[in-house]
Design a protein around this nucleic acid. Structure first.
Lengths: 188, 188
DNA sequence: TGACTTAGTGAACGGTTGTTCACTATACTT
DNA sequence: AAGTATAGTGAACAACCGTTCACTAAGTCA
């Protein structure tokens, strides 16, 4: 089943859409569309694909799981090996709840020691209760900044990841805009 | 034209595929498919969309540009505003050349001061000549590691972004696996 | 052995697909 | 005022769409 998904993902990567049943049949050298239809149905039942209300195949939210392409120091994984260039959909990998997730570009270096640099893009999910240690976007003195969310004996502390800045003990109200669920950086 | 793209992107986000011409017509309250057809053709000519060899619409590589959702410190951008949850395709944003890009998970902390942490995912493009200051994946003593690529009077130096480690002056052969074009980190 | 599941073939269906053509109404030039 | 783009209508075309049905061959299990 993994092999079949691999082929379909490859089609998806190349054509930027999922195949029709005829195309699916060609992909697997089936003489009949129906074989493809049944295969697709099986993959749908197994939760790997989805269908439109019009019957068209569409990618599941988590269509392509992250390929286990090995660790950097463990010998060089050849990208020529098909499996490694198997597309992952970063969209679906990064975003669980599209309706409550949004994007910000980071300015300032207050979280630089947490690996969040100016110019990076952060994905923020709102409406979730922050856990101790989460990176949150919070309103401090009318300005929104990124900080670690910590608790010290039942009191909330906002901690920057940069020695240049100080911890913040919010006095009255503390507004949390959301918690940072991922960081994306692109060079050049 | 931006408004029209917005509607199409919204359809794409919801349905996980681009509309047919009939659906496009419904989307814009056109009575005729042909109006949609012409609109699509215009957007294709302007470089915002693409067509299959079968005529179907497919997303451009850079289909949805990154929404300019403002900087963190510049007042809180409300995600309720439609435009902000306008999907960006991270895939297309991050990956220019799918055929020569692959994914690695980072182990080790040799680039931690560059904001590349253990567990992060790096996107690597192979076959490109590194520029001074690029982060590259290089083979050092038979092991692959991430390092800054620098030149000191015509000689190549591999510089880690962590004071714990030392610069490497490669003696004979130096194998560059590719250059890091982006970093993706997901929390939890 | 015999019953049952699974995987694929092949044909058929009504509806939808992308595309083209001829036509109309509105707006923008000069 | 006349001419010309631009935007949308409506109908038509063959080709293809998803889906269903009846059937076959191979494998599995008891």
């Amino acid at each position: 089943m993994e092999d079949q998904l691999k082929k379909i993902r490859k089609f998806f990567r190349i054509h930027r859409r999922l195949p029709t049943y005829q195309e699916l049949a060609n992909l697997f050298n089936f003489a009949s569309k129906n074989a493809a239809y049944k295969l697709a149905q099986k993959l749908i039942d197994a939760g790997f694909l989805e269908k439109d209300e019009t019957g068209k195949l569409i990618p599941k939210k988590l269509f392509a799981p992250l390929p286990n392409s090995g660790f950097v120091q463990a010998g060089f994984p050849s990208p020529a090996e098909e499996e490694l260039i198997d597309t992952i959909s970063f969209d679906e990998y990064l975003i669980d709840k599209p309706e409550s997730t949004f994007i910000l570009r980071v300015s300032g270096d207050s979280m630089i020691d947490a690996g969040i640099h100016p110019g990076d893009i952060v994905l923020i999910e709102k409406g979730r209760t922050p856990k101790d240690g989460d990176v949150v976007i919070a309103s401090v003195d009318g300005e929104w900044t990124l900080k670690y969310y910590h608790k010290e004996q039942n009191k909330i502390v906002l901690v920057p990841a940069n020695k240049k800045y100080q911890k913040i003990y919010p006095k009255n109200s503390l507004e949390i805009g959301g918690i940072v669920i991922s960081v994306v950086r692109k060079y050049n």
